[in-house]
Design a protein around this nucleic acid. Structure first.
Lengths: 148, 148
DNA sequence: CTAAACCCTAGACCATACTCTAGGGCAACT
DNA sequence: AGTTGCCCTAGAGTATGGTCTAGGGTTTAG
């Protein structure tokens, strides 16, 4: 049993366009064609495609994914290179995770202000400080003036 | 005291180009100009810029950041809208965090294989299965054949 | 045997987010 | 006054990752 591009699109959530685009980019050299020239995805192909999605979802660039797939096509001799590539990517993901966590906390801090009962007071204070700073530096006030 | 665009670039890690681009995109309506038409960043402006970076670093689109900044410029009356916008973004970040965590685990699983002493055996097994599947479906073998 | 629903390629087009160039003004030092 | 090093805008160009169209072949059910 093999799968058509449409079936694979449904299974993966990628569009047919994207699948063909990935093939054009050299990400799917492992997908064979049937006698009509149609792509025939095996379950093994789906497994590899899942790995590609995994890398894509963690923001690996297509050129790097292509490099990884190229290694896979070369067989076991490329295991050291695959390991190096994935380890570098792992580090990139960990760094990104840390950054996201930090930014998320900032956003939660902002949200706490906006959700608190003193939200208006706090926001007004910030605004007053910002406006005073503009005036102190001889700058125009870019904030919208309250129309009582 | 105010900061020039160059100083702000150094402080934030954004390029001067990017800062001007953000201004062009309506992300910096709060930055006033001095008598020569130069941007003059106050410390309050830096604070807001930091928030912009926070949103950008968590993949908020520029159009959405612009919306948020527009709310900020409107003063306290827009607090409910700011809250709604940030809460939606918070949910998006949480979803992304979960997805990254899941994909990271997949990658770590792969790495464990590549790092284990049986790496070559395991990879060869996978490859054999994939090739057998191609043959079973009358497809060409796209993998590189070992030259003994 | 034909219509509907697939499949294919090549290549144009689009969105997003920058990045850079050209042309010109301002500020400080020499 | 000239040179250096900033600043400005407008707009062109680039990189990335799709998305779609045109033109054409295949497969399947009626």
């Amino acid at each position: 049993m093999t799968y058509t591009i449409k079936e694979v699109a449904e299974k993966t959530g990628l569009s047919i366009y994207t699948l063909r685009f990935y093939d054009k980019q050299g990400l799917l050299p492992f997908v064979s064609r049937n006698s009509s020239g149609y792509r025939a995805f095996t379950t093994g192909d789906l497994q590899l495609l899942k790995t590609i999605c995994c890398l894509k979802n963690t923001d690996m660039k297509i050129s790097d994914i292509r490099q990884y797939i190229t290694y896979v096509m070369q067989g076991p001799s490329s295991i050291p290179e695959r390991r190096t590539l994935l380890q570098a990517h792992q580090q990139a993901i960990l760094a990104k995770q840390a950054a996201i966590e930090k930014n998320l906390q900032e956003i939660e801090f902002k949200l706490n202000i906006y959700t608190s009962p003193e939200a208006e007071t706090l926001v007004n204070q910030e605004l007053a400080v910002a406006q005073a700073e503009k005036i102190a530096n001889d700058l125009s006030n870019p904030f919208q003036v309250k129309n009582a």
